[in-house]
Simulated scan of single mutants.
Amino acid sequence: MPRVWRYALVLTRRRDTADDLSQNTALRALDRAAQYTPGTRLDAWVFTIAGSIWRNDLRAAAVRRGQGVVPVEDVDLADGRPDAETNILAREVLSLVTELPDAQRDAVFLVYVEGYSYLEAASILDIPVGTVMSRLAAGRRKINEAVKGKEAEG
Rank of each mutant, 00 (worst) to 15 (best):
N56R: 14
L27F: 09
G51E: 02
A107D: 02
L94M: 15
G51D: 07
R32G: 06
A44E: 14
L77F: 08
P38Q: 12
L30H: 07
A44F: 06
S52M: 10
N87R: 11
D83N: 15
V46N: 08
Q67M: 11
R41H: 05
V108E: 07
D43I: 09
R91W: 01
D57Q: 09
D76T: 12
Y36L: 13
A34Q: 12
L96E: 04
L58S: 00
G51N: 12
A50Y: 03
R59I: 09
L42T: 08
V108F: 13
S117V: 08
V46P: 07
L89M: 06
E114F: 10
W54L: 05
L94R: 01
L27R: 13
T98A: 03
E85P: 00
D106R: 14
D79R: 14
Q104W: 03
V63T: 09
A50C: 13
S117Q: 09
E99I: 02
T40D: 14
D74C: 04
R28E: 15
E92N: 07
V63K: 05
D102Y: 10
E114A: 11
T86I: 05
D83C: 14
A26I: 07
G39R: 10
L110V: 01
A84I: 07
E73Y: 02
L58F: 02
I88R: 15
R55G: 01
G80V: 08
T48K: 11
T40W: 10
P101H: 04
R59E: 14
L96D: 03
V93W: 00
S52C: 11
R32Q: 13
N56D: 15
D43C: 02
S52P: 02
A33H: 07
Y116I: 01
S95N: 11
D83R: 09
L89K: 12
I49L: 12
Q67G: 06
V93L: 15
R59P: 00
T98R: 07
R64K: 11
A50E: 05
A107W: 08
G68H: 14
A34G: 04
T48W: 04
